[in-house]
Design a protein around this nucleic acid. Sequence first.
DNA 1: AAAAACTATGTAAGTACTTACACAAATATA
DNA 2: TATATTTGTGTAAGTACTTACATAGTTTTT
Lengths: 317, 317
Amino acid sequence: MDFIHQLGPVALGSRLRRISEQLTAEASLIYADYNLAFQPRWYPVFYLVAQQPGLTANEIAERLGHTHAAVSQVVKELVKSELLAAEPSASDQRRRLLHLTARGQTLLPQLQAQTADVRHGIEDLLATAAPHLWSALEALEQHLHQQPLHQRVAAARQRRVSSGEYIRDYTAADQPIFRQLNVEWITRYFALEPADLKALDQPQDYILAPGGCILLAESAGQVVGACALIKLRDEPGYELAKMAVSPAAQGQGLGYRLGQAAVQRARELGATRLYLESNSVLTPALRLYRKLGFRPVANPPASPYARADVFMELFLT
Amino acid sequence: MDFIHQLGPVALGSRLRRISEQLTAEASLIYADYNLAFQPRWYPVFYLVAQQPGLTANEIAERLGHTHAAVSQVVKELVKSELLAAEPSASDQRRRLLHLTARGQTLLPQLQAQTADVRHGIEDLLATAAPHLWSALEALEQHLHQQPLHQRVAAARQRRVSSGEYIRDYTAADQPIFRQLNVEWITRYFALEPADLKALDQPQDYILAPGGCILLAESAGQVVGACALIKLRDEPGYELAKMAVSPAAQGQGLGYRLGQAAVQRARELGATRLYLESNSVLTPALRLYRKLGFRPVANPPASPYARADVFMELFLT
DNA sequence: AAAAACTATGTAAGTACTTACACAAATATA
DNA sequence: TATATTTGTGTAAGTACTTACATAGTTTTT
């Protein structure tokens, strides 16, 4: 379950699918509760015909935003279950006009009562859990319609290719360069400490497994920057750590872009606070952190790093 | 497409499914753009193995929140495509440890670049369209987990059964009672007008088809109240009209509950304003409208009803 | 040490849709 | 009036998962 969170919005489709599957499963339970000889997926077609007898499969499909094939299959089942009946239109022999059978009419009141209950249940759920979800979905669909996702992605690709630089996630093969970039700057100013070695030698165990992530900046096919988000204990937040930019790539705002990406990622992961430890000698880094919005912590906790003498945090709304 | 909107949150599952399908379709387009011999649904498994070589199918399934069967099938395809390879664990002959092949390693950088682009594209989409969608989905899943939907629906059912009253949607079979309830009160105070007959004789054509809806209050199996939401022109709003409660059921707050349901429904339909026309003689009704939040309109438009001399509106946020 | 239970994996079939194709009836075009 | 196109419908097969079942290897119980 944690990987979906790590991927974040990239897995938006999967997430929506999973929730919808969950709701579908719930729907079966609900129908079972009401003891109706009725399948959830019949609902829209049946209800539409109840509202408006004389509709054809094609018209229903259009109203539901499904294909005629889907409706055709459902209608077939509904006719077989003797809930709907069809008769050919007098004016157009191809059209099959649908209406409820006597059995369907008998079922209708129960289905209406159930629908009212479901409506209340979902309204209750949405009101308490996600009051703006419905309108957000509306907006999402509209924007998707206006500019499809693949166009947005193509634009992002364009920007990446023209800038030659992008930020991506760490994978196992990146451990050597992740280590090297950090060792480089740490040993220039300080000595490597045990906590460094743990995180740099086994980032998988010490950073990723506990729910953190590592971002790498790649420029011209080379990894030239890195930073990690390490899960804080007992709070929905992360420590921004192991931030390193290769000397050759410094002074071009890469660190800032990397930092921004980390902040954005933390936001997506549901963080409410970012925390970091640094050293007063590293003035350019401290300036960068300030620029990203970090401020000194009032009562810093004990640090596993001897070199840590500056402690900052950034609250995310 | 309009029926999903009419059903509103009742169709939450369908809506989520449809958006996710749309995103899946977009994903195929994106993969086509990048010319990668790679299927979208392979992505999570492949990426997880890239991050953490040595995982087994079962572990991946757990992390993805899917079944092992799904992962097993994807792994099979990935192995066939020579992107992943598996070797049995030394300590446990059942476990098949997965890792990237040379071909997989070659593909990885391209996939990472593509992922970065997709992330940007979706972040852009969410930022502009639905900034709180991600957290709303998070909250929705949590609440669903805490109290499953069928429990909420069961609670709603309980309330309905114990109160003996509920509010539901109109279907074709309800036309006679819808007409009767309205004719009853109109003729007590006024004369039936042509606009009344249109709406009461063919509610399908004059109310539902243009995107409105009709709510009915049922008590002890009898329809004892009705009201309609009629789509306003050129604005996302509705006219609250044809509100009627049977004399026998009056004085029990039914009108208020019906009105509240109508306001709620209008909200779900994305309305920003409700409008109504009434007559100064109908003091109980006017009191009810006030209680629902309606206020007099400054510059009322021309009305098709001779009896209309009070014009009110309610703005929905 | 044998039996029972559990675990990792794989396969088959189902789900609720889709796309692709087929065919007859209606309409438009020549 | 014959032909081409469009429209309404149905069926088959695919999709990305699921559940159900089967099987072999491992661990626990007796």
